[in-house]
């Protein structure tokens, strides 16, 4: 599914809208995991608006593609994505993180429509994804399972148990991503617990690894197309190098913005920054699109 310029522009527009909605939600909630929410957002935008076979009118359609946000703390942008898509009322975002809301910072699959797995405790998502992928194979269904891990999350040993099983069972109906924003709560990933050589680790486990700019819609689409066309029996891991807080320049690439609050001033500056970032991204499309 090669990306046309028109599609690229539409996806940029959608990513911008979802970034705005993520910022709005953070502002309404007072605070949220906005850093990692924005770094992963282009991945979710591309999946939900170009690739995933889902039905908004039938959220539990058994043949739907599955999406598992293993880095469940990015719930703020996941919530924005699901509400914008129509699975839940956008008004629900105004209750995000608030007492009594069915939408907490880590989304509950039994409360929020469209969520395929309740995550939050890290290192769980890929195992669940392997399970749904194996189930699809056993049931003769051709849906795909997409799973997104955080890079800091990869410190958890359970991910590597899951990785080993994905390769052992030749799980090619699962497409995996790591949102490699290089930040975690206490610092840079390489300072807290060195992950490198990161791609080589996944390759050593038996994955085909595509390393890309995960905030570049075109590169994301090319990597996902590559995964769709994979004819080997190895699973594909897309290591998406991203910027924490992508789109809001004054929080970008700053691990201190793992979780943060937006007051009125920051909110206004954030909106302006997102608009400027969007214009730059549009200019890039104009320049790079064939």
């Amino acid at each position: 599914m090669p990306l046309t310029k028109q599609e690229w522009l539409q996806l940029e527009k959608k990513a911008h809208e979802l970034r705005r909605l993520t910022l709005d939600t953070t502002y309404w909630a007072g605070s949220a995991h906005i850093g990692g929410g924005l770094s992963v957002l282009d991945i979710m935008t591309v999946l939900y608006h170009k690739y995933m076979n889902i039905k908004v009118e039938d959220p539990k359609w058994e043949d739907r593609d599955r999406f598992i946000l293993s880095k469940g703390h990015a719930g703020v942008s996941y919530a924005a994505t699901l509400c914008d898509y129509g699975f839940n009322d956008v008004e629900l975002l105004k209750t995000f993180n608030l007492s009594g809301s069915k939408m907490g910072m880590h989304l509950d699959s039994n409360k929020v429509v469209g969520v395929d797995a309740s995550t939050g405790s890290l290192g769980h998502g890929m195992s669940i994804a392997v399970g749904t992928a194996l189930a699809a194979r056993l049931q003769g269904k051709d849906y795909k399972t997409f799973v997104v891990l955080g890079d800091g999350e990869c410190d958890e040993g359970s991910n590597w148990e899951a990785a080993m099983s994905a390769v052992h069972y030749k799980i090619t109906n699962m497409i995996s991503f790591v949102d490699r924003n290089k930040c975690m709560i206490d610092g840079r990933t390489e300072d807290v617990m060195n992950l490198e050589p990161f791609c080589a680790k996944w390759e050593a486990f038996g994955f085909i690894v595509k390393e890309i700019d995960g905030n570049n819609i075109k590169e994301l689409c090319e990597a996902i197309d590559f995964a769709y066309e994979n004819k080997t029996d190895k699973p594909v891991m897309i290591v998406a190098n991203t910027l924490k807080g992508c789109g809001i320049d004054f929080i970008e690439d700053d691990y201190l913005w793992h979780y943060g609050a937006f007051d009125d001033d920051k909110y206004e500056r954030g909106k302006k920054a997102l608009d400027e970032s969007y214009q730059k991204r549009i200019a890039r499309v104009e320049k790079e699109a064939e």
Partner: peptide, 27 residues
Amino acid sequence: DRFFNVGIAEQNLFGVSAGMARAGLVP
């Protein structure tokens, strides 16, 4: 075809089972 031995990896055992259950199997 309906038997899965995930090796000495209990955390993965439970996660994989949860994924299967969500997809309609009874693990």
